[in-house]
Simulated scan of single mutants.
Amino acid sequence: MRSAPSWPPRQLRRTLSEARQALEQRWLELTRTLLPGIARERGWPVNLDHCFQRILLDHACGSCWYEAIAGRPAYRKASDEQLAAAVDAGEQVLSGTLDLKRLNRESLRHRGKRGR
């Protein structure tokens, strides 16, 4: 008896895997290099990679990321949709169309802390 072909097909799985890899690479570039690199000149209250990751993932999840994403590292455990939303927010912060200070205050409020 022949087994049914697995879904998605191998080629599509490879393409999806490549897309996810690209998304993760952009995430790391944004949060480890690009955003920390401009933090001081923009007067942001954070400059460490894990702070940018917290802020962007919280924004994408609408709550503390660890309430929506099971496991660590969060970017690897996040759904494609969650990570894409976090990357998109990072791109907007980088371009100046989304206010990082506001997102940080929002993130801190999710955690029961006062936003600066």
Score class of each variant (00 low, 15 high):
75 Y>K: 03
38 I>K: 06
56 L>I: 01
37 G>A: 10
64 C>W: 04
27 W>Y: 00
113 K>Q: 10
68 A>R: 15
46 V>P: 05
29 E>N: 12
35 L>D: 00
15 T>Q: 15
26 R>S: 11
89 A>W: 08
83 L>T: 04
99 D>Q: 03
95 S>F: 02
12 L>W: 08
109 R>S: 09
95 S>A: 15
9 P>H: 14
39 A>M: 01
49 D>W: 14
54 R>P: 01
104 N>F: 05
95 S>Q: 08
27 W>T: 08
99 D>P: 05
101 K>L: 00
46 V>A: 15
18 E>Y: 11
25 Q>T: 14
86 A>C: 01
94 L>M: 10
32 R>F: 07
95 S>I: 12
69 I>R: 03
5 P>E: 04
14 R>V: 11
65 W>N: 05
47 N>Y: 04
18 E>L: 15
113 K>R: 09
83 L>C: 12
50 H>N: 14
25 Q>S: 13
53 Q>E: 14
23 L>S: 01
19 A>E: 08
57 L>V: 02
3 S>C: 12
85 A>D: 02
13 R>F: 08
82 Q>H: 08
48 L>Q: 15
77 K>N: 12
10 R>D: 03
75 Y>V: 01
90 G>A: 06
94 L>F: 14
34 L>T: 08
29 E>L: 15
103 L>V: 04
92 Q>C: 01
23 L>M: 12
82 Q>V: 07
60 A>K: 06
83 L>W: 01
59 H>V: 00
89 A>G: 05
6 S>R: 15
7 W>M: 14
13 R>P: 03
17 S>C: 09
26 R>F: 03
33 T>S: 12
21 Q>P: 06
18 E>M: 14
114 R>Y: 02
47 N>R: 10
68 A>C: 09
108 L>H: 04
56 L>R: 00
67 E>H: 14
48 L>S: 15
9 P>M: 13
58 D>S: 01
71 G>E: 05
71 G>S: 00
65 W>C: 05
115 G>C: 07
34 L>K: 12
